[in-house]
């Protein structure tokens, strides 16, 4: 299986990338290519132009402030796994990164690419939602920011307008006492997740969030999960959430509830 023909552009700056995107027919952004590559090879995707962002130096940078850590779009899962990216989440980011697909994929796959592809089963989709991260978006008109919970709109759909791309993500800093839990069910190590449970408890910052991810659409976020996980895990409440999101399959429900329960236990709730 070989991709259909496409043009290729390798801009050196974000401004040039935005200009290229704005002035083309059906263009797709290429980062590590670990999700788009298979779709191109299978000819599910037939873009006219690929805009390769991986040679833009500013997209491979890290910025730290006292409140957040900003990770450039083209930073790889392996970079985060290996601790090249400072951790502000008491180990959550490197732990999640180290279980994404396989090492040979993590060496090229990027955090920005994964979030823009917006596969519901992707680890970063659930993780950055539970972390209340902010997405920094670049377009021809400049920069804007949206919370992760408003960034993904549905399967493969994100809040990027024509000519925009994800430039970086901002992860809020955990306080020292913050705890987290993350559990995913996969048929085989490295495969697409069937259910993801993610929990962050950071009382110092007043944060208690939970996510049921790897649904068939956006992750289910409970922004205030005090009732759900505050006094131990409330399986009935988790089931009610699935009801509201019309997840009816008994097997799927069991996986989602159990993944969240295990994440809750890991977070010490």
């Amino acid at each position: 299986m070989k991709p259909g023909p496409f043009d290729y552009a390798r801009p050196a700056t974000v401004e040039r990338a935005a200009a290229l995107l704005a002035g083309s027919g059906f263009a797709k952004l290429l980062s590590g290519g670990q999700s788009l590559g298979p779709m191109l090879n299978l000819r599910l995707a037939r873009p006219d132009l690929l805009v390769d962002l991986t040679h833009i130096a500013s997209l491979k940078e890290i910025r730290e402030t006292k409140d957040f850590l900003e990770i450039g779009a083209c930073v790889t899962h392996a970079n985060i796994e290996d601790g090249l990216v400072p951790d502000c989440t008491n180990g959550m980011l490197p732990s999640v990164a180290s279980n994404i697909a396989y090492r040979a994929v993590r060496n090229r796959g990027t955090i920005g690419g994964s979030l823009s592809h917006a596969d519901p089963a992707a680890d970063w989709v659930s993780t950055l939602t539970v972390l209340d991260a902010e997405i920094v978006i670049r377009g021809a008109k400049g920069q804007r920011r949206v919370p992760m919970a408003n960034y993904m709109l549905g399967t493969f759909e994100v809040a990027l307008e024509e000519g925009e791309f994800l430039e970086a993500v901002r992860v809020p800093r955990f306080s020292k006492s913050a705890r987290w839990g993350y559990y995913k069910f996969c048929r085989k190590a490295g495969e697409f997740a069937e259910a993801i449970g993610a929990v962050v408890r950071d009382p110092e910052r007043g944060v208690c969030r939970a996510v049921m991810g790897a649904t068939h659409s956006t992750p289910i976020l409970v922004a205030d999960a005090t009732a759900l996980i505050g006094q131990g895990f409330d399986a009935a409440a988790a089931g009610a959430l699935l009801d509201r999101h019309e997840i009816t399959d008994a097997y799927e429900r069991q996986l989602h509830v159990e993944a969240l329960r295990r994440a809750t236990v890991q977070a010490g709730a």
Partner: peptide, 9 residues
């Protein structure tokens, strides 16, 4: 490796 970004880039 110490450089950030995809290998090959």
């Amino acid at each position: 490796p110490e450089k950030l970004g995809p290998v090959g880039s």
